[in-house]
Simulated assay, not measured.
Amino acid sequence: ANKRSVTIDAETEDGHELLLALIEQADVVVEDLDPGDAEELGFGYEQVSANRPELIYCSITPWGQSGPYVDLGFRASDIVLQGMGGPVAATGSPDREPLKLGGSLALMQAGLVGAWSVAMTLLRVEADGEGDHIDVSVYETQMGSRDRRTTSLTTYAYQGTPSSRRGGVAGLVLGGGAQPCLDGYVNITAIGPKIHQFVEMIGMGHLSGDERLMQPPLTLDPAFVEEISTAYLAWSMSRTKREALIEAQSYGMLSGVINTPEDLVNDPVFRGREVFEEIEHPVAGTFEYPSRPLLMGETPRQPASRAPLLGEHNAEVLTELLGVSAEDLPLLKGVGAI
């Protein structure tokens, strides 16, 4: 984590002063309060940057700092923002309701946009000393998402055609989609001419070159599709998912296993690149954690530190950075400032 945790109640008089003093020490301030709340507390961008033009202030909120949804006080969560701005309308089965993507993807994308915006602004500060107020709208990051959203907007702009749910790859090509194996699932996609290698791989080489293979399955004789599907299932269920992967790759087809968490932890690729680090935590215990997903040729990776406990570094940060005396710390805690 390599982070330090400080807890301050900015609504107390002493806490207010402490937070202002910390901001004076900071290059970057990131906040996600409702628009206007930071100003009411005395920590708005104009207030804290008045004497510090180099300060970078990043606000990440559902709708941004202005607009009709802000004026109406609309609330939002990840599923709301994915549905309103993201590709939910095009995700899932056409026979069912739309589906959100897994996890808190909208919030993660907004965080990445904020991080890159801060990094670019830091470069500008180093060049000419000018900071800025970065206003990140989670809603807008979804509307501009590369995950089918910008492409669907472009399609609508050019053709007036809205995006729709089309089912999975398995409904569009004969050799596509997740396929069960002896120990899980493998994902193989045989698109275009690769479909001929696909039928050879599953033991139906006599169909190689058959023009019907290039047609969408829904336009074909169901018996023909069933014949191929049955052979495909028999092929996959006689192999582990890794055996199926290796064989499909040998035919030059896009393919990959569908890994479980156990598979990822034991993957020789990750082990060989030393992706996992063992970290001891005073509450959770000692476990392995995935580290940063990149290696730098000339910069050795520094060991990661554990995630901090809430307020663990109050004394360290307040005494070292702000010059608060050790004797005053119990007093600040007693009045609820920390």
Score class of each variant (00 low, 15 high):
residue 1 A to I: 12
residue 2 N to F: 03
residue 4 R to Y: 07
residue 4 R to Q: 11
residue 6 V to P: 05
residue 7 T to E: 07
residue 10 A to E: 11
residue 14 D to K: 13
residue 14 D to C: 05
residue 15 G to E: 07
residue 17 E to D: 13
residue 19 L to C: 12
residue 22 L to M: 10
residue 24 E to K: 15
residue 29 V to T: 07
residue 32 D to Q: 09
residue 33 L to I: 01
residue 34 D to K: 15
residue 34 D to W: 13
residue 37 D to K: 15
residue 39 E to L: 13
residue 40 E to T: 13
residue 40 E to N: 13
residue 47 Q to I: 11
residue 51 N to Y: 09
residue 53 P to I: 01
residue 55 L to N: 03
residue 57 Y to I: 08
residue 57 Y to P: 12
residue 58 C to G: 06
residue 60 I to M: 05
residue 65 Q to P: 10
residue 71 D to F: 03
residue 72 L to M: 10
residue 73 G to S: 07
residue 76 A to Q: 03
residue 79 I to D: 02
residue 82 Q to V: 08
residue 91 T to K: 12
residue 97 E to A: 12
residue 99 L to H: 09
residue 100 K to P: 15
residue 103 G to H: 00
residue 109 Q to V: 04
residue 110 A to N: 02
residue 111 G to T: 00
residue 111 G to V: 01
residue 115 A to Q: 02
residue 116 W to P: 02
residue 127 A to L: 08
residue 130 E to T: 12
residue 134 I to V: 04
residue 135 D to S: 07
residue 136 V to N: 01
residue 137 S to C: 04
residue 145 S to W: 03
residue 146 R to L: 15
residue 148 R to Q: 07
residue 165 R to M: 06
residue 165 R to K: 12
residue 167 G to V: 07
residue 167 G to Y: 02
residue 178 A to R: 06
residue 178 A to C: 05
residue 186 V to H: 00
residue 194 K to W: 09
residue 196 H to F: 07
residue 198 F to I: 05
residue 199 V to D: 00
residue 199 V to Q: 08
residue 202 I to T: 05
residue 214 M to V: 11
residue 215 Q to H: 04
residue 220 L to S: 03
residue 224 F to V: 07
residue 226 E to T: 12
residue 229 S to R: 15
residue 231 A to T: 00
residue 240 T to A: 01
residue 245 L to K: 04
residue 250 S to Q: 03
residue 251 Y to S: 08
residue 257 V to Q: 11
residue 259 N to Y: 09
residue 259 N to H: 11
residue 261 P to C: 10
residue 268 P to H: 03
residue 282 P to W: 10
residue 285 G to N: 08
residue 296 M to S: 08
residue 297 G to E: 11
residue 297 G to Y: 02
residue 298 E to R: 14
residue 301 R to S: 11
residue 303 P to Q: 13
residue 309 L to C: 11
residue 313 H to Y: 06
residue 315 A to S: 12
residue 316 E to M: 14
residue 319 T to M: 14
residue 321 L to V: 13
residue 332 L to M: 11
residue 333 K to Q: 14
